[in-house]
């Protein structure tokens, strides 16, 4: 009976719930997953048959992972995330990604980059659609080029023998990955919220 939890459909379902519930505090998310695991085990133990169809039926009755995550978030006191328009969200996410490319513009580049970073972080922290934990993670990722660009430049110059333009051109796209990852995570979480709560 223990193997019901290793069924591919069950695993995919539970990891989808886990992914969609990232805005929940960790302990609450683990509790939700434990409750769902127990439910699936019991429901399948009571099922007459134990094939893919009965697994599918049990999961269908449990409902959409996003809906369950939204219900769990709604139970959290206080800071309920409130969806914002996709245009507002896109502007915030663009501002989070552009500083590094913009910094390459001669003379005014660094100032524009600084302004975009400040604007992105202000919009991020003022937005009601993300929880504190998401904002903290995103802030670290957005600011990461401050550390990753020099570090990668050093690594590249050691590998390529000297701080060449090529070393810099390799370091910059690599460093932009982390802000882009932050923007993708925030964008997904915002889109989920719009889908389930608006």
């Amino acid at each position: 009976m223990n193997n019901t939890l290793t069924h591919p459909l069950v695993r995919a379902y539970l990891s989808s719930v886990e992914e969609q519930a990232t805005a929940l505090p960790g302990a609450r998310r683990q509790e939700l997953l434990a409750d769902l695991r127990e439910h699936i085990e019991v429901a399948l133990a009571e099922s007459d048959t134990l094939d893919d169809n009965s697994v599918r039926r049990v999961l269908e009755q449990l409902g959409a992972p996003g809906e369950i995550a939204a219900a769990a978030l709604a139970e959290e006191p206080g800071n309920h995330p409130v969806p914002q328009s996709s245009r507002h969200t896109s502007v915030t996410l663009c501002l989070a990604v552009v500083p590094l490319p913009v910094a390459l513009v001669p003379v005014i580049g660094p100032f524009l980059a600084l302004a975009a970073t400040v604007a992105a972080l202000v919009r991020l922290w003022k937005s009601p659609q993300w929880v504190r934990r998401e904002k903290r993670q995103a802030t670290l990722l957005v600011l990461s080029p401050v550390v990753t660009v020099p570090a990668l430049a050093v690594v590249c110059s050691v590998v390529l023998g000297g701080l060449t333009p090529i070393a810099l051109m390799t370091a910059l796209p690599a460093a932009v990955c982390l802000p882009v990852a932050a923007a993708i995570r925030l964008g997904r979480s915002a889109a989920r919220l719009r889908r389930h709560l608006s």
């Binding site: 719930v17 609450r28 509790e31 939700l32 409750d35 769902l36 439910h39 009755q61 449990l62 409902g63 959409a64 992972p65 809906e67 369950i68 939204a70 219900a71 769990a72 709604a74 139970e75």
Partner: peptide, 13 residues
């Protein structure tokens, strides 16, 4: 009747 999974957060509370 609602998606059963949405009741678990309520039970947890």
């Amino acid at each position: 009747a609602t998606s059963q999974g949405t009741i678990y957060p309520l039970l947890s509370r």
